[in-house]
Structures are given as C-alpha cells and as structure tokens.
Nucleic acid binder design. Structure first.
Lengths: 77, 77
DNA sequence: ATGCTATGTAGCATTAATGCAATATATAAA
DNA sequence: TTTATATATTGCATTAATGCTACATAGCAT
C-alpha cells in the first residue's frame, strides 16, 4: 500500500492565511517551506507531513486540529 | 531539500498505548497501518504523515498536540 | 522443550511529499 | 505601457514514510 491511499485531509489554511493578511509566500517563509507547497496544500492536492502541519498551525496561531481534519469542514467558521 | 531534514517529532505513543493495555499490533490494527510502523514511530526513527498522526491520536483517545510535539516531552506526564 | 506473543532489526520496493524552475494569467500600481 | 505581486500549472528530481518479509531474541506460558 502507499502512504496515504486516497485519504484526503481537509484544511482551512487559505481561510486562516487570508484572515491574517498573509500571502502564500509569507506563510511559506514562516513555515520554512516552498511557496508552491502552500498552494498544493490549500488546493488539497496532497496532505502534509506532521512536521509541516505543526509548523503551519504554529505560523497561523492555530491548533493542528483546528486547521486540519479527516472530515470536511463546515462552511463559514 | 528533503521532506523533514533532521527535523524530529517527539511523541508519547508508547506511553499512551501501554496505558491502554494495547500491543503495537493492536494499535496498528486500530490505526490501519503495519505494526512495524508503530515500532518505528515509537522509536522516533521517523515522523508520521499528518493522516497517520490523526488516526493514531484518535485510536489512543488523544489530541494530536497531546501525542506529538516538535519539542521533547517532559518526563512523567 | 515447545509454543506463543511482543518486540527489534535489516533489507527491499513503492509512492507521496517536497523542492525547484519555468511559464502563464490576472490584477493593481506606477 | 510597464512593472510587480499573487496565483496556477506543469514537469522533473530527491527522499522519507510506509508496507512487507524474514529472522532473532526474550518472556511467559504449557
């Protein structure tokens, strides 16, 4: 089996990032990753490693569980 | 750069697993992974994907942030 | 002694996550 | 118009995370 076989992880990265007035590049810098990576994550093209998830959560002043979920987030908050 | 270049993730998987009286195989079954994977994680030989971290946390009735951390956990609770 | 369970170790194969470069588009500002 | 910023898209290379198999060891039963 592969690592995450068609097992998506939903997230609210873009929502939180925009709320803080940050560009993807800004967030990428804070999290220490490539800015394209943020794009891939926001489009949910793949799910991050735990390390990255923790770094992003920290960069956005959120708990991992507030930003990422195995089940879809409800619209609006 | 690689994915998690020498960036360890500390965890309390073994502690929590034993507290629940589960074997690695038991936890592996609940989390849907190979039992060796649990071993690797407990020995902190590598850090899990976010999906796996969430599944393990759920299997152990814990929050991701309670089980995993970028900084070492203090001894005893 | 035999068997079973739990664990460690080692090796190999697969693939997703990430980096990075290039190009394209849209928008806003100068 | 030109410039700069933000984003999307594509493609390629690297490597860590995971699966799986096999073997070894130790403990605890029987």
């Amino acid at each position: 089996m592969s690592r995450n076989p068609e097992e998506p992880v939903y997230n609210r990265i873009e929502e939180s990032r925009v709320a803080l007035g940050l560009s993807r590049q800004d967030l990428a810098n804070k999290a220490g990753v490539h800015y394209q990576t943020i794009g891939y994550l926001e489009r949910e093209e793949y799910s991050p490693s735990l390390v990255l998830a923790i770094r992003i959560a920290k960069s956005l002043n959120h708990e991992v569980s507030e930003l990422f979920s195995l089940t879809p987030f409800k619209k609006g908050k």
